[in-house]
Nucleic acid binder design. Structure first.
Length: 632
DNA sequence: TTGTGAATCGACTTCTACAA
DNA sequence: TTGTAGAAGTCGATTCACAA
């Protein structure tokens, strides 16, 4: 009526829109039951409180945690007061903690029963750079991720409810969760149990790497971009639609622990808590925990030190996929350092000089990944053109032609420059295979890519990853014998997280966790209240429940349409054009600097400055990867 | 029985003193 | 000058006494 006039016809035609409902609710909320004359402010009574102002208050609070914003809206009668928001969040937190105490385990209410459950553990550090900053935070965060399937959506647990009881603050979490018992290793460095390691099927590697070459070939031959061409790496593989059917994963963050993650006691404590959560949600499942390299090393040693409690037959610790990818990109960066790669990128105008230098240390994973995709395409283009030139020359003298692979092998022996850039291209393709294994949730490909990547870590002297990745690979390859039920889940693609419905967008477990950490650190996050335990508890315990209430209201009022997009975010013509332009520019620059694949000298030199490396380096390069393979 | 206004509560924020 | 602990102030809801 407010919007469309008072006549019945228009009422019947338009019905009640969202804004009508909101205005009606605000009218009721702002009618005071006890109106006082001459007072500075009027008090709202609880029995007239409608859903809309509560939703406004809670959603602004959940997103920004800014008192002034909520107060401003309250002043204009659009939302409940900040203290009322605090009270509701305290009541939710109180109800949640009561549930924790009742169940005897800290397990967020959004998690469902009967689903395959994995966990991620990571340290969370916040060091404010400002000189006047007063708070820094070193803690441990744990995410629990559940993987529903089409057949098994899991059993939702009882919803949190609270009565009229007035609660001021969120109560303390159970001692069993927050108190970490001291622990230390009896022996200095526990050793792994001996076992035989099977090799992954090497014929699979051929077919998988062929898919990457297929993409390189496609980029090389494509001249014009029209709407339908999927040229970038992600768009190309997304268009192949190799991913199996999946459902969006359920993720929940457990309350932060205020202890450093890199200690035996914390790792042991977290393993115990994750075990409790898994036992509560999915009885009989072997707990799975993902961690980055230092924590992984500690967790494995904990397993070997206390085999009766956390032994490899009772617990599975896996390496974080994002960490492996970052380490591989960094390793490639050390290889490319002083090679003239960054200079070529700057000259080709695909990256500024600062960005190009940061690509070597893989500071931004996405940027580095994209730049390596551009580089791989450019290198392949130059490699092919060198091969074609060589074939043309050869045709003048002899009749027999060499196959592409044979030609590469011969050229590797002849020219260190060729060998170096061929190795860079091969390593880039292996890293892409690893990333593709996550995106397509292909466990066999993951094992394959790992076994191909480990020699590079050995060869490039990345000691930590070279030491611990073989142990992780052993765990993965022997999984079918040690934990057949876990092997089945992983083969079904449950070693990655599906955050959205989009194709080719699955993430490694620890990447999903890092995104949750970013929310903690971001706007409206926990940073700023880490010094105040009660405020932090409110944020950690009640925060997810508040978000849950907000999304429930949105669903009921249909303020947000569920997204139906299934295509990958890079499948746009603009992204394809930018990618193609970059590849063209870089390959032209590399060609102008002198095609490294057409070099005949015995020297290894930098692309842009033409500085020649020590002759020993050129010699060592010949056996670089072989030495890596030797240690495996 | 209902309405009114002062007193009280307690979480949260801001200020201030003091030590290093 | 900086960091921290504790005091003081703020604010809306609730409670309770009292009047109509």
């Amino acid at each position: 009526m407010v919007e469309h006039g008072a006549d019945i016809k228009s009422q019947l035609r338009f019905g009640a829109s969202k804004s009508d409902q909101a205005i009606a609710q605000l009218l009721q909320y702002n009618c005071y039951s006890r109106y006082k004359e001459g007072v500075a402010f009027q008090r709202h009574s609880k029995d007239r409180e409608t859903l809309f102002p509560i939703y406004m208050g809670l959603s602004v609070f959940a997103k920004t945690r800014k008192r002034s914003l909520v107060e401003l809206m309250n002043e204009h009668g659009l939302s409940i007061s900040y203290d009322r928001v605090l009270e509701i969040s305290a009541q939710l937190g109180d109800a949640t903690v009561s549930r924790y105490v009742e169940e005897g385990v800290v397990c967020p209410p959004v998690l469902r029963k009967g689903l395959f459950t994995t966990a991620v553990m990571d340290n969370i550090d916040h060091n404010p750079s400002a000189t006047t900053a007063t708070s820094s935070f070193h803690g441990t965060s744990i995410s629990v991720i559940q993987h529903p399937t089409k057949e098994n959506q899991g059993q939702e647990r009882q919803k949190i409810s609270f009565g009229p009881k007035k609660v001021r603050s969120v109560p303390e979490l159970p001692d069993t969760y927050t108190n970490i018992l001291p622990a230390s290793f009896k022996t200095k460095n526990p050793l792994p149990p001996k076992c035989l390691i099977p090799k992954p099927h090497s014929d699979d590697f051929g077919t998988q790497i062929a898919l990457e070459y297929q993409w390189l070939e496609k980029v090389m031959v494509t001249e014009e971009i029209d709407g339908a061409v999927n040229l970038t790496w992600s768009a190309h593989h997304a268009s192949m639609k190799r991913s199996p059917e999946f459902e969006v994963s359920v993720t929940a963050l457990l309350p932060l622990l205020r202890d450093q993650a890199h200690s035996i006691a914390t790792v042991k404590h977290v393993m115990e808590k994750v075990h409790d959560v898994v036992a509560n949600l999915n009885r009989g499942q072997v707990p799975v925990i993902t961690a980055d390299q230092p924590i992984y090393a500690l967790a494995k040693q904990v397993q070997w030190q206390w085999p009766e409690q956390y032994g490899e037959d009772k617990y599975l610790v896996i390496f974080g996929g994002l960490n492996i990818e970052m380490a591989a990109l960094k390793s490639l960066g050390t290889l490319l350092c002083n090679s003239g790669w960054t200079g070529a990128l700057v000259e080709a105008d695909v990256a500024s000089s600062g960005t190009a230098e940061s690509l070597l240390s893989a500071a931004s994973v996405t940027k580095t990944r994209q730049m390596h995709q551009v580089t791989a395409c450019s290198l392949y283009k130059l490699l092919k053109s060198a091969y074609n030139d060589s074939c043309a020359d050869r045709a003048d003298t002899t009749d027999d032609t060499l196959s592409f692979e044979e030609w590469c092998e011969i050229r590797k022996e002849q020219s260190p420059q060729f060998h170096f850039w061929h190795m860079v291209l091969s390593m880039e393709l292996v890293i892409f295979m690893l990333i593709r294994s996550f995106r397509e949730s292909n466990f066999a490909l993951y094992c394959q890519a790992l076994s191909e990547l480990i020699p590079y870590f050995f060869a490039n002297n990345n000691t930590h990853y070279a030491l611990w990745l073989p142990i992780h690979l052993r765990d993965m390859l022997t999984l079918e014998n040690t934990h057949p039920e876990l092997a089945k889940e992983f083969q079904n693609g449950n070693f990655v997280v599906h955050k959205t419905n989009r194709d080719f967008s699955a993430l490694a477990l620890d990447q999903a966790h890092e995104q949750a950490n970013a929310i903690i650190k971001g706007d409206g996050g926990a940073i700023g209240l880490t010094e105040d335990p009660s405020a932090l508890r409110r944020w950690m315990v009640a925060g997810p429940e508040v978000s849950c209430l907000v999304s429930q209201y949105e669903m009921e009022a249909q303020t947000k349409e569920p997204s139906e997009h299934r295509s990958h975010h890079e499948q746009t013509s603009q992204a394809q054009k930018t990618f193609k332009r970059r590849v063209d520019k870089l390959s032209q620059t590399l060609k102008d600097l002198g095609n490294p694949f057409q070099e005949d000298s015995k020297d290894l030199y930098s692309l842009d400055t033409k500085d020649i490396a020590h002759p020993d380096s050129a010699e060592l390069l010949q056996s670089h990867l072989q030495r890596g393979l030797f240690f495996c």
